[in-house]
Structure formats: structure tokens, C-alpha cells
Amino acid sequence: MASIDYYLGTVSPYCYLAGRRLEEIADKHGASITYKPVDLLQLFDRTGGVRPADRHASRLEYRRQELLRWAEFLRIPFNIKPAYWPVNTAPSSYAVIAAQQAGGGDLGGLAHGFTRAVWAEERDISDDSVIRELLEAHGFDPALADKGLLVGAETYGRNLDEAVEAGAFGAPFYIVRETGQRFWGQDRLDFLDRHLASL
């Protein structure tokens, strides 16, 4: 059985565009997924990337057009200027980490729920009440928002180190442990699907 390390950002628009396709692909091939939320801004800093706020205007305009094109193609709601972006991603990331440790709920739904909250629902994913609501909606104890703080903080930092070491430099980033094959971006999920089929 293949194992996929999924490096994600709970505020990433590209993780939102990915939707639940990763989970569908993993189910099809009997693969497991380990969710690894990372601080994307620090990941950019450590791997030669440029933070969105520091990018040239031409890159920002292309990003805007591309996001809207993909949202239309995928037929999903998308607000190019969400009310709560940028936002502190640590609390939501800790919640994903705590939920993964606790088990028993829909972890993929939770991770996607955070990105959808930002890019389609105009919700603040750093707000404790939003985090608790999303935890409960996806089958987890809302108290994980508090219980997982220490472990979440430690794992969040470790995820960043692991991402850099593994060769990840953005999100969504998928790495198949058994083969070392890397796939960057929601538009590479078809290639991940084909790779898993070949194993």
C-alpha cells in the first residue's frame, strides 16, 4: 500500500482548488495519506520562493487570472479577495494535527473545510469558534482546538523542517514515500493518480 505525505496550507487557494480529489485517488489505490500542515510563508523563505506580498505585479495578476480560471473550470465558488486573507494559519493547522492524532473523523474534509472557509465562505479560520465548528462538523471533538495546542505547535514546526528536507516548496505538495516521487500543485493530481496505478 502506498503512503502519501500531503504538505498543505490551511489558507492555500490551490489546496482549496484540489478539493477532495486527493482522497478519492488514495481510496481508489488503497493508499494512505498523512496530512502535514506547514507554514507556507516560512516554506517559501527557506526554499527560494517569494511571499505573495513581495511578488511582482505581473505574477500577482497571472495568479489572479489562473485562480479564477481554475475555479470556473472546477465549478466551485471562489472569492478572489476573501475577507480573511492573509490570516494566521497556526490555530487551524494545530487543529488538523490534533484531529489526525485523535482519529475517528473525516480528516480530509476538515483540511478542505478550512480552505473552503477562507476562499468560499468568508470565515476567519484563526477564530476559535470557527475552528471548533469545523472540527465538530467533520466528526471530531471540538475541544481538540485547545487540547492539541502544544503537540500541534511542535508538529507544525517539525512539518516545516520535514517539508524542506523532503523537497517540498509549496502547497499542495504530495510525496509518495515508497518511490520518492513528488507532485506539486492541484493540477498534478492526475499524474499522482497515474503513478499510484503503476505501483
Rank of each mutant, 00 (worst) to 15 (best):
Thr10Trp: 01
Glu165Gln: 09
Val50Trp: 04
Arg46Tyr: 09
His138Met: 07
Ser3Met: 02
Ile4Cys: 06
Glu23Asn: 06
Leu135Phe: 02
Glu72Gly: 09
Ala120Tyr: 06
Arg20Leu: 10
Gly152Tyr: 12
Trp85Lys: 15
Asp128Arg: 12
Tyr62Trp: 14
Asp106Lys: 04
Arg177Asp: 02
Pro13Asn: 04
Tyr14Leu: 06
Gly49Glu: 14
Phe173Trp: 12
Glu23Lys: 09
Tyr94Ala: 10
Lys81Leu: 04
Phe140Trp: 08
Leu17Tyr: 01
Glu23Val: 03
Leu40Trp: 14
Ala153Ile: 06
Tyr156Ile: 11
Ala57Asn: 10
Arg64Cys: 07
Asp128Glu: 12
Phe44Trp: 09
His56Gly: 11
Arg116Glu: 12
Asp127Gly: 03
Lys147Trp: 08
Gly109Ile: 03
Gly109Thr: 03
Arg69Pro: 01
Arg69Leu: 06
Tyr35Trp: 11
Pro86Ile: 15
Arg46Ile: 15
Glu122Arg: 03
Pro37Lys: 14
Arg21Ser: 01
Pro86Asp: 01
Ala120Gln: 01
Tyr174Cys: 04
Ala57Glu: 14
Leu160Glu: 04
Trp184Cys: 07
Phe191Ser: 02
Ala31Arg: 10
Pro52Cys: 05
Met1Ser: 06
Ile33Arg: 02
Ala18Phe: 05
Gly148Asn: 08
Tyr94Val: 15
Ala168Pro: 14
Gln42Ile: 05
Val50Tyr: 04
Phe44His: 01
Asp161Leu: 12
Ile4Ala: 07
Trp85Leu: 12
Arg75Met: 03
Pro82Ala: 08
Asp27Ile: 01
Leu60Arg: 15
Ala83Cys: 07
Ala31His: 02
Leu107Gly: 05
Thr34Asp: 08
Arg64Thr: 15
Ala18Trp: 02
Ser92Gln: 06
Ala120Asp: 01
Gly19Ile: 10
Tyr16Lys: 07
Ala120Gly: 10
Ala197Leu: 02
Tyr16Asn: 09
Ala53Asn: 08
His112Gly: 02
Pro82Tyr: 04
His112Arg: 06
Ile80Ser: 04
Gly30Ser: 10
Leu68Pro: 02
Asn88Leu: 12
Ala197Met: 01
Asp39His: 12
Ser93Gln: 11
Asp141Met: 03
Val151Tyr: 01
Tyr94Pro: 05
His56Phe: 01
Tyr62Lys: 13
Phe114Val: 03
Val176Arg: 08
Glu162Pro: 15
Tyr14Pro: 10
Ala166Arg: 07
Ile80Trp: 11
Arg51Asn: 11
Gly108Lys: 03
Asp54Val: 00
Thr155Asp: 10
Phe78Tyr: 10
Leu17Ala: 06
Thr89Phe: 13
Ile76Pro: 15
Gly9Cys: 11
Ile4Val: 14
Ala26Lys: 02
His195Leu: 08
Glu122Pro: 13
Leu43Thr: 10
Lys28Ala: 06
Gly113Lys: 00
Arg123Pro: 00
Ala145Gly: 10
Glu133Met: 08
Thr179Trp: 00
Trp85Ala: 14
Ala111Glu: 13
